[in-house]
Simulated assay, not measured.
Amino acid sequence: MSALDDEIGDLMRFAAQRSMLPRFRQLAAHDIEMKGANDPVTIVDREVEAFLTEALTRLAPGVAVVGEEAAHADPAVLDALSGQCWIIDPLDGTANFSEGREPFGIIVALADAGRAVAGWIYDPLRERFCHARSGEGAFVDGTRIAARTTGQQPPVTAVSRLFLTPEESRDVDARLAPHYTLVDIPRCAAEQYPRLALGENDISSFKRTLAWDHAAGVLWLNEAGGKAARIDGSDYRVDEQDRPDLVGASSPAIWDEFIARITV
C-alpha cells in the first residue's frame, strides 16, 4: 500500500475505535435524530465526520471536503464536487448502526473534476480495508483482488426497495424475478460493493446515487474488473448524484445482460 493508503486507513481505524465501536448497541435515544424518512443521523456520524474533515484538511490543505452531514446542513457544500475534493461518509449504514445491527462502515473518496480518483472503504467489525486508485487496481487488506461472480444460476441480484413506490417495486418483481435470485440489500454501500466483487452478489441497482455512498465503491468495483455505471453505460460522476440509474455488477457481461433486461 502507498503512504496515502496507510494514512487514510489509520485515520479510519482510529475514528472507528474512538467513536464508533464503543457506541455500537450503546446509543441513547438522544444520540439519534431523523433527517427525513428512513434517514437517521447519530452522534457518531457527526463526531467521525468532524474528525476526518479536520484530519484530511491537515493532510491536503486547500482540497475541499464534502461530508454527508455538512452537505445536509448546507447544500452549497455540494458545489465542491465538481472540483478536487475529499468525500466522506462518516457512518455508512447509519440505519443499521442506530438499530444495533450490522453492517456499517466508513467511506472516503478523493475526486477531481467530478470523478473519483481514489477510494477507501473500511468495515470496523471485520477490520476489512478496501482501497483503489484509478488505473492501479483494487485491493482488500493490501492484496490485489479480481472481481468474481457468485457462479450461481440465476445470478444473485440485490435490489433496494427503500425508495421505490409500490408500483415500481411490482415492476421490479415482474422484470427480474423470472431471471434472477432476488435478495435484500444490506442498506450499506460499504458492504454492498465488496459483495459484488467477492462472490456474494452479482448485481445491485441503486435508486439513490449520493457521492458519499458510491464514489469509492464504484471506483473500487471497476478497478477490480466488475462494472458499475449508469444505465446508459456512461460513467458515474460524483457531481451528478441526483440521477437514479446506477447499476453495479460482478462482471461486465452480467452488467450487460441485466441492462438489456431492464431497458426492454
Rank of each mutant, 00 (worst) to 15 (best):
S2E: 09
A3Y: 00
A3V: 04
D6C: 01
R13Y: 00
F14E: 12
A16L: 03
A16E: 03
M20E: 08
R23M: 15
F24S: 03
Q26C: 08
A29R: 10
D31P: 06
M34S: 11
V41A: 13
I43M: 06
V44A: 02
D45I: 05
V48G: 03
F51M: 15
L52K: 03
T57A: 15
P61G: 11
G62C: 04
V65Q: 02
P75I: 08
P75Q: 12
L81C: 11
S82C: 12
G83H: 11
F97S: 00
E99C: 14
G100M: 14
F104C: 10
I106E: 02
D112M: 04
D112L: 11
A116E: 04
G119F: 03
I121R: 01
A132M: 06
G135A: 09
G135E: 12
E136N: 02
E136R: 09
F139H: 04
D141H: 05
G142M: 10
R148E: 14
R148N: 01
T150S: 12
Q152M: 12
V156D: 05
S160P: 08
F163W: 13
F163D: 10
T165D: 14
V172H: 07
L176W: 09
A177I: 07
P178Q: 07
T181H: 09
T181I: 03
L182V: 10
I185L: 12
I185G: 14
I185F: 01
R187G: 06
Q192H: 10
L196C: 10
A197S: 14
L198Q: 13
G199I: 07
G199M: 11
R208G: 01
W212T: 00
W212R: 01
W212Q: 00
D213W: 00
H214W: 08
N222L: 06
G225F: 07
D235H: 03
D239A: 10
D239T: 06
E240M: 14
D245E: 15
L246R: 00
G248T: 11
P252N: 07
E257Q: 13
F258H: 10
R261F: 00
